[in-house]
Amino acid sequence: MKNYHLAVFPADGIGPEVIAASRQVLRKLEQLHGGVRFETREYGWGSDHYERTGAMMPADGLRQLEKGGFEAILMGPVGSRTIPDHVTLWGLLLPIRQGFDQYVNLRPMRQLDGVASPLRNPAGHPIDMVCIRENSEGEYAGVGGRVHRQRPQEVALQSIVFTRTGTERVMRFAFDYARQHGRRLVTNVTKSNSMQHNMVFWDDIFQEVATGYPAQASDQQLVDSMTARMVSQPETVDVFVASNLFGDILTDLGAALTGSMGLAPSANLNPERRYPSLFQAIHGSAFDLVGRNVANPIASIWSVQLLLEFLGETELAARLMHAIETVLREQRVRTRDLGGTSSTTDMTEAVCRALETEPVFAKGR
């Protein structure tokens, strides 16, 4: 029996609903596969914790997680109607990303069969992109401040931080990912025409790293024109590596192009596994959907698939991906973001049924 220890954060908004769906899928995988178990410990940190204590998590939160011996963290969306977004983000998610050196944010954007894209000719422009986003520094390094508040001379500074180590390692990850997954092209997303210091530095390191992968095709695109390329020529976009801010923006665009933010997973990775990695749907808290059992759980379930893949459970990951694809291709169960009326429960149960119809899992390891 292989036991995995997962920290689970239902977090905010529809988080408890989509995380419950993800846990149901994990239980189904346990039932179908006799050789694996997912032991979970739930943490109630997030906006409710902030309302009670004035903090999104305890002061020793990272230490608690590190001592827990977790291989991974499964988290719901973080955000509140009553707490400023910068407080919720810097109070929980970013401290975990930075404290656990989760320097790769992996976000697949693929239009699945049975899901409509807002593009006019999706068949002629297939979408299958992967963003490798630098996740620990860049525009979200948190360096800066404000002085002379509420005065005419008030100044706000937010410094972008690129280190050679941080930039080089995420670019090597992008090239390694492309090679390992048979991807044809790695695109460097930049803005070095106007940001003549940090983004030129970024470009220089990309070129240095690219020379170590002579068999891998690569190109470069300014971030503004990258948005147009993703819309008008998405079939030319394969793997792209981007800074924290650029990757954040471009992946929301990519998710929308694939048909719904409800289909957008992510993985925050510490590739060396010195710390647990974090898996989370990238949609928001969706306050208007809370408690109505109508949220699409696929983004969170797909994040579980990324978790399984990262843990090395490739068979389980492949079977779960196949189940997701089957449910969406058949179009019998559709949540409202996909133009249907099915519930969160309906979609979750459909994925579990699709898992049951797969060939029987091998027992044991």
Rank of each mutant, 00 (worst) to 15 (best):
F162I: 00
S243I: 00
E137Q: 02
E325G: 06
G61P: 11
I298E: 00
G145D: 07
D224H: 13
N135A: 01
V327W: 00
S22Y: 03
L26K: 00
A295F: 01
V360I: 15
T251L: 04
M226S: 11
Q153S: 13
I160P: 02
K28T: 14
L26N: 01
Q196D: 07
L250S: 04
Y4K: 08
L65S: 10
E325L: 05
L112R: 09
K28M: 13
V231K: 13
N105M: 04
R120C: 10
G259R: 06
V186I: 08
V241Y: 02
N135E: 05
R334F: 02
Q31H: 13
V237W: 10
C352A: 10
V327E: 00
I324K: 03
A264Q: 01
M1I: 13
R23Q: 15
L62C: 14
L320P: 10
G182N: 02
H148K: 14
W90E: 09
L253D: 07
F162K: 00
G124Y: 12
D60K: 12
M261D: 04
A20W: 04
A55Q: 13
V147D: 11
G247P: 09
M199Y: 14
H197R: 14
E168S: 04
E39Y: 13
L32K: 13
A354E: 08
V170K: 02
N188R: 08
F240I: 10
D238Y: 05
F162G: 00
S80P: 08
L253A: 06
D288L: 11
M230C: 11
V241T: 04
D219G: 14
D113T: 15
G145N: 02
L308S: 08
R353N: 10
S232V: 14
Y177A: 09
G54Y: 06
H49I: 11
L65Q: 07
V147F: 13
G76S: 08
Y50D: 03
V147S: 14
F70A: 08
I96L: 14
E42V: 02
A156S: 12
T236C: 12
T190H: 04
R365H: 10
I132F: 05
R37S: 13
D60P: 11
N188S: 12
L263I: 03
E272Y: 14
Y4T: 05
P108D: 01
G124V: 11
E208S: 05
L112K: 07
